[in-house]
Write a protein that binds this DNA or RNA. Structure first.
Lengths: 123, 123
DNA sequence: ACTTGTGTTGACGTCCACGTCAAGTCGGAG
DNA sequence: CTCCGACTTGACGTGGACGTCAACACAAGT
């Protein structure tokens, strides 16, 4: 299959796929005419990349997962490096959520305070 | 006072202050030699901007607060537009936290699953 | 033969909040 | 006068994940 079909079936764009290739994330075989040639395996890789980035993973973070699939594992997270990324992301997420929660509380407090000042008179 | 002092006292850099000016956020008067001239009022504005961006507000979001102070109010959030930004940010934060929480749970589940697969054999 | 669709590469644009660098100007101290 | 620090402007870089455009080649359908 060519890049257009892979893009459609993978839920992305040809531009993104060429970009992935430029990062060495998704190298492509070339046909006689120089066009990129992909197979069903590549479609799996694209799905893996998309589902991970969709979750909020950076492209670099998807590399171990893709590598893992390419090594023949049935899932991208069957390798230690992928699991490590999970762990790191989880820690990042926890941290981020905690910080955002604190900020939210702070903004909430400021908002209440501002509202109090604006209508301190009856009711 | 000149830009260097304002930067030091405001806890930022001269580069940032010039950038704020380029955005029309913090216009500066100019002395005879063309140098930017600031006063204590500007320092307050800088503090307002810094404390808001420090919380995670975008520079554009600080505009109503700065404007509010410039209109003579004692706090930047004394104006309706500022309060509106509070509300919007609060909603954004809640939304963001919710989504991140869902992602975290998802990653957690995937992690557990991957760990199960890796050592399904006793203990 | 012609058009349409799909492919190719490369380069530049986007968003955000500045950092960094270059080359020059200005004021005051010694 | 010289030197230093502070100031000026402008241009380019950063990171992430592509979007957009140019200019071209190739294949299939009518």
């Amino acid at each position: 299959m060519r890049i257009g079909e892979l893009a459609r079936r993978g839920g992305t764009t040809t531009r993104a796929l060429r970009y992935y290739e430029s990062l060495g994330l998704l190298p492509a075989r070339r046909g006689a005419n120089g066009q990129r040639e992909y197979d069903e395996e590549d479609l799996r890789l694209v799905h893996e990349i998309r589902s991970l980035t969709g979750i909020g993973f950076a492209l670099e973070d998807t590399r171990p997962f893709v590598q893992c699939l390419r090594e023949g594992h049935t899932t991208g997270d069957a390798c230690a490096a992928s699991v490590e990324v999970y762990r790191r992301k989880l820690a990042e997420l926890d941290d981020c959520i905690t910080r955002l929660g604190a900020v939210r509380d702070q903004v909430r407090a400021q908002l209440r305070e501002a509202e109090q000042r604006s209508k301190p008179c009856g009711r």
